[in-house]
Design a protein around this nucleic acid. Structure first.
Length: 762
DNA sequence: AACCTCAAGACCTAT
DNA sequence: TCTTGAGGTT
């Protein structure tokens, strides 16, 4: 048995490529992970590289683990100390090893997105900046965007006073982080990049060490990550990048698809290998995906094909309401299960997490086991974050974010007033809050001193304990467990805190600790005299970098619910894509720009290609969103799939948005024909069509509302001075209370009071 | 200082 | 719909 058995020609070519830079364009289901892992095993087995000389980078911890598992299945070697991990994990590892050269305290902590936001809010408050004018969220995006481009605040281009101020705040934020000894996610990368570019001995050490660098999901790299890779490969390493430009769905967090084309031009010219044979899905599913994605521009080009037959058509269902849609999904799943399919092989996908609720409700009512991915994860739960904050303070009491989080939780008589005093003193002396405690007078100062003493005491009392006992001690001594025990709804929180103890034990015992920073360092850099981070520090990194699984009902055969983003890289026998509505999928925030729309289309492409055998598409005429009923047209993506791949399960007459009776090919006729050219959203024509259809107006039996002598009806076109032309989608109330929900197309749907808003009937 | 109520804003995706 | 923050009350 050879590693190379059963590879198709392009796969074989990729696996056994000479040591040189190469780009593998790997379509969905074309054996991408297999190629990556087989190449790693092959390189090692043939003695071309030692396990230490190989680095493999992924985006998710799951992918890293999968890679490790599959590689060791082929080639049983000791993987301890191998550099296989996420960009963030590997950078963390490097920074831990060289914290001094990186200008960080040994105990530096990692801020997740939420921590970062609260740090920013605290900064704005301390600096007396108007957070109306400089919204914390926007500043966060500004900072992260700059860091992802590799720019410090002094390098950010600021042409106007607003961005100059933002850059200024960015600088203050970095100073605050430095003072507190914390780094945010993008900082891990930037700091690591700067370390390598400025410190020649360290750079050369790693450049010399890594002979082969393999990158998974290359289309998701941002500019900084690309530069980081180039820097590491600068000593002659072969960069083997695997990706699929059609599956680039992370532009919103800085991913730059352009890296692929640039990489080909700069490095991999003449070494592009395409994997286009798909081993996953039947023909109809692939045809749908191929046709859909052809609407995008600037693709590197790729067409999936299969040796399997067409398979079954893609089933399409239109529901009246979101709950009816959910009901239908459950019914279909019932019959799939009755046919003998496993529930874990069935996935329900949606664009945004908020959509899961209706589906969960329907599944729950039907007694159908299900598992939701996404949403709140274990390490993001309030009580767990509180416990982690205590642990972080024990490691580094100067971390003000953690301090503020728990200084008065559970309540210990430290109020806003006292904390304000403390913050003032700390700011004046440029010290941390912890360091300023002694200077606060009065009862507040006394309480603060007791809190600081609590932290010190917990550190002292646990200093020689194993990790899980440290955690166990802290959740009690901090008062968290006692607090939640006396709270009405606290039982589950206490359970989660106890679970944190288990997580710590598991982390110390198994893969976590050796796999993470410390163990790897011990193996890889004994010569450098590296001080190992404590198990607690390693555990805290782990908690920040891997937020953990969600509420996983272990072992149960359960239907899988997740967002399309979360589904990337996975596959199922049967897939439901729900909520295929304009404004939802494609999402309304992305519709206006071509780039945004194309990313949505790639997202749809990812969703479609998750299915092996059966694919179901569904949409609903009405949906509860933001607490109110909204009306959407069906997604344009439905009309971008060839009709011959589809099988409509719902009658094609009498439904809103559809043409009147008859015509089996309405899906590609009615509004496709008069749809404006690409680039336009096509909303206006559709809205006009709504108005004249027998859609909602007839069914909802709305006689209309009269205000000021004008009769308003659902479906009617109206004009507003600011929002432009729109269509009334619903009416409520009467007289002076009358309100209308109006779809203004590009502007969105607004609810207006008819007595106040000046509306003209068009 | 703690507790409560109400309003506003988010809700799109996530290492 | 849910969470967060502000403001008022005890």
């Amino acid at each position: 048995m050879s590693l190379l058995d059963n590879l198709n020609p392009p796969q074989l070519a990729a696996v056994t490529l000479e040591p040189r830079h190469a780009l593998v364009l790997a379509g969905a289901g074309s054996g991408k992970t297999r190629v990556l892992t087989t190449r790693m095993a092959w390189l090692i087995q043939t003695g071309q590289v030692s396990p230490h000389g190989l680095m493999a980078v992924t985006f998710t911890n799951k992918a890293a683990r999968e890679m490790l598992t599959r590689m060791t299945a082929m080639l049983p070697i000791n993987t301890r100390g191998m550099w296989i991990g996420t960009f963030h994990g590997l950078c963390n590892r490097l920074l831990r090893a060289h914290y001094r050269d990186a200008g960080l305290p040994q105990t530096f902590q990692i801020l997740d997105t939420a921590d970062q936001l609260s740090a920013i809010k605290r900064l704005l408050k301390a600096a007396g900046v108007d957070d109306e004018k400089y919204p914390p969220r926007q500043l966060q995006n500004f900072i992260n965007g700059a860091k992802e481009e590799g720019l410090r605040h002094t390098a950010v281009e600021a042409y106007d006073s607003f961005s100059r101020q933002m850059a200024e705040l960015y600088g203050m934020y970095d100073a605050q982080c430095q003072r507190e000894g914390v780094v945010d996610f993008p900082e891990l990368l930037l700091r690591c990049f700067e370390l390598l570019s400025r410190n020649a001995p360290i750079r050369e050490h790693y450049q010399h060490r890594f002979r082969h660098i393999l990158v998974d999901e290359f289309q998701d790299t941002n500019r900084l990550q690309y530069r980081w890779l180039k820097l590491l490969a600068g000593g002659g390493a072969a960069l083997f990048a695997v990706g699929d430009d059609d599956q680039s769905i992370y532009a919103f967090r800085g991913a730059n698809v352009g890296n692929m084309a640039e990489f080909e031009r700069e490095y991999a010219h003449g070494a592009v290998i395409r994997l286009e044979q798909n081993y996953r899905s039947y023909g109809h599913i692939l045809d749908a995906a191929n046709t859909l994605i052809r609407n995008n521009s600037g693709r590197l080009g790729k067409n999936l094909w299969t040796e399997r037959g067409h398979g079954e058509p893609i089933r399409v269902y239109e529901a009246m309401t979101d709950s009816q849609e959910a009901q239908w999904v459950v019914e279909e799943i019932r019959s799939l299960v009755a046919e003998g399919r496993q529930r874990r092989e069935i996935a329900i996908l949606y664009r945004s997490n908020a959509q899961s609720r209706v589906l969960e409700h329907a599944l729950f009512s039907a007694g159908m086991p299900y598992k939701v991915y996404g949403g709140l994860r274990f390490f993001e739960r309030q009580e767990v974050k509180h416990a982690l904050a205590y642990l972080r303070l024990m490691e580094n009491p100067h971390e003000d974010t953690a301090w503020m989080r728990v200084v008065n939780f559970p309540a210990r008589g430290i109020g806003a007033r006292t904390l304000e005093q403390l913050a003032d003193i700390a700011r004046a002396s440029g010290s941390s809050l912890y360091a300023a405690v002694a200077q606060v007078p009065g009862r507040g100062g006394n309480n603060l001193a007791q809190f600081a003493a609590l932290i010190d005491r917990m550190r002292f009392e646990t200093q020689n304990l194993p990790l899980h006992e440290i955690v166990d001690h802290v959740i009690e001594a901090s008062g968290l467990v006692p607090h939640y025990l006396q709270e009405k709804e606290g039982a589950e929180r206490v359970e989660n805190l106890r679970e944190l103890v288990n997580a710590a034990a598991a982390f110390a015992a198994e893969d976590g600790y050796p796999f993470d920073a410390a163990g790897a360092l011990a193996q890889t850099l004994p010569e450098a005299g590296i001080e190992l981070p404590s198990p607690l520090a390693a555990f805290l990194s782990h908690a920040a970098l891997e937020a953990g699984d969600n509420q996983a009902s272990e072992g149960q055969d359960a239907v899988q619910l997740m967002t399309v983003h979360a589904a990337k890289g996975l596959e199922f026998e049967a897939v439901f894509i729900s909520g295929l509505e304009e404004g939802l999928f494609p999402h309304e925030n992305s519709i206006l720009e071509q780039a945004g729309l194309e990313e949505e289309r790639r997202l749809m492409y990812v969703a479609v290609t998750r299915a092996r055998e059966r694919l179901y598409l569904s949409f609903s005429q009405t949906r509860m969103l933001h607490g109110q009923t909204r009306y959407h047209m069906r997604s344009r993506f439905l009309s971008e799939i060839p009709e011959e791949c589809l099988k409509w399960l719902t009658p094609k007459t009498g439904l809103a948005g559809l043409p009147p009776a008859g015509g089996s090919s309405w899906a590609r006729s009615a509004w496709d024909d008069d749809r404006p050219a690409r680039g336009d959203t096509g909303r206006s024509s559709k809205d006009a069509y709504y108005g004249s259809s027998q859609g909602y107006a007839g069914r909802r039996a709305d006689a209309g509302v009269e205000v000021g002598g004008v009769l308003f009806k659902v479906g009617q076109s109206v004009a507003h001075a600011r929002f432009g032309e729109g269509v009334i989608v619903s009416l409520s109330g009467s007289g002076t209370d009358a309100q209308a929900q109006i779809n203004f197309g590009k502007v969105g749907t607004k609810t207006l009071a008819l007595g106040i808003a000046k509306l003209d009937v068009v």
